[in-house]
Nucleic acid binder design. Structure first.
Lengths: 211, 211
DNA sequence: ACAAAAAAGTTGCAAATGCAACTTACTGAA
DNA sequence: TTCAGTAAGTTGCATTTGCAACTTTTTTGT
């Protein structure tokens, strides 16, 4: 459980103490199940200990939309789903899942025992949410480009910067890249070909070099 | 100070107590200033009491990019700016600004006095961040549409749903709408004209009706 | 090693879009 | 009331893009 971001910086001994302090419950769900985010009407925080799940929304025309993919260490709960619009959000298991549940109120509440880990946990949750915001902003920045070409170049530049090198391998397939950029795959490959011919990049499959 | 979301649900009496408990400081800045997010190396939370500011990023080619507009009641701070990539984010005053600063550590720390308002404040911050995520997701959903037409229709449908009516007035100018959709303004107006001619909408200026 | 499936790559064509250069309609201050 | 500035609306044209229908290459399971 140590590689779970929400528990970063919390020592093993403390973790146990904390879990009992928070009335944490360990539950198992089969693939296809919806993961609940409340118990007795009270909002809860869930941590995926193992398995894969999706945060999905059902569109106004019933179309299912995956907003986020969750795997080991990821956190979910009412607080992440929110609020106005009250869209049909749900967490759906894609495989069988092990989940650790905590009471949301307990987590954010002032702790009568003044446990040290308490503020660490809150800090971690804030960091997780901030990282989520960052990720969405990055995505938005790429999409803010008006042409396919500049979308690609923006994405490539960001990835190169992250990799610390002009050469890098995409973290997913080219088809997935097209989905991420929300463009037609063949149009994207055509544009990559153009970039290649103009010697702005060289690429083969998922491996790309800026030149 | 009562209409400030971060202080929602905290009573006046408590607020004063809290501000001293958090060692809150009131500062004024002139237009054009950068708002700091640390003091003596310690991260701080800022609340805009009055004035306007922007969260800006400086691109790799030095281009200035406004990520978010902040006005009365909005919160800023390291935790919202984050992390990896360590982009050149800054908060820049657009007008003179009144800012209330709090020590981040104090805010998230277990409170020795076990103050009631403490958990309320943390809850509010989490809600603010969740709302931010929601807003970004919504934006992303609109941009995920591949054509200008469907971008418009998606945005209009969402706005209508929010307004609870097929008739609504845009919360900003048409030029701003084009910016929000990241499309050319004239191309957008042309498409709106098409939609009008096909009787899918009727519109005049910022007032739109779905039909 | 082979077949089958998945991913990558290609291309023609019609339609959508950005861009530029306008005109027309509002709105607010002197 | 008029003038100036801003927002809305229009249009032609070159370019970009989505879409569909492929081929080629790579990966995977047996």
């Amino acid at each position: 459980m140590e590689n779970v971001k929400i528990f970063d910086g919390i020592k093993d001994g403390e973790l146990e103490k904390m879990l009992s302090c928070f009335d944490a419950k360990h539950k198992k769900f089969a693939s296809g199940n919806n993961l609940p985010t409340r118990r007795y009407g009270e909002p809860r925080l869930g941590v995926i200990l193992s398995g894969e799940a999706d945060l999905v929304r059902y569109d106004y025309d019933g179309y299912r939309n995956i907003l986020e993919h969750l795997s080991q260490g990821d956190v979910f709960g009412e607080i992440f789903m929110q609020i106005e619009g009250a869209d049909e959000l749900a967490i759906v298991c894609e495989t069988k899942c092990d989940v650790l549940y905590m009471d949301y109120k307990n987590v954010i509440k002032r702790c009568e025992n003044a446990c040290e880990f308490h503020s660490t946990l809150v800090d971690n949750i804030l960091k997780i949410m901030a990282a989520k915001v960052q990720k969405l902003r990055t995505h938005l920045e790429v999409l803010s480009q008006r042409t396919l070409r500049t979308k690609l170049l923006t994405y490539f530049n960001m990835t190169a910067k992250q990799a610390g090198s002009n050469s890098f391998t995409l973290p997913f397939s080219l088809a997935d890249l097209a989905d991420y950029l929300y463009v037609d795959r063949s149009a994207m490959l055509r544009e990559m070909k153009n970039l290649r011919e103009e010697n702005l990049i060289s690429s083969r499959g998922k491996h790309i070099t800026l030149t």
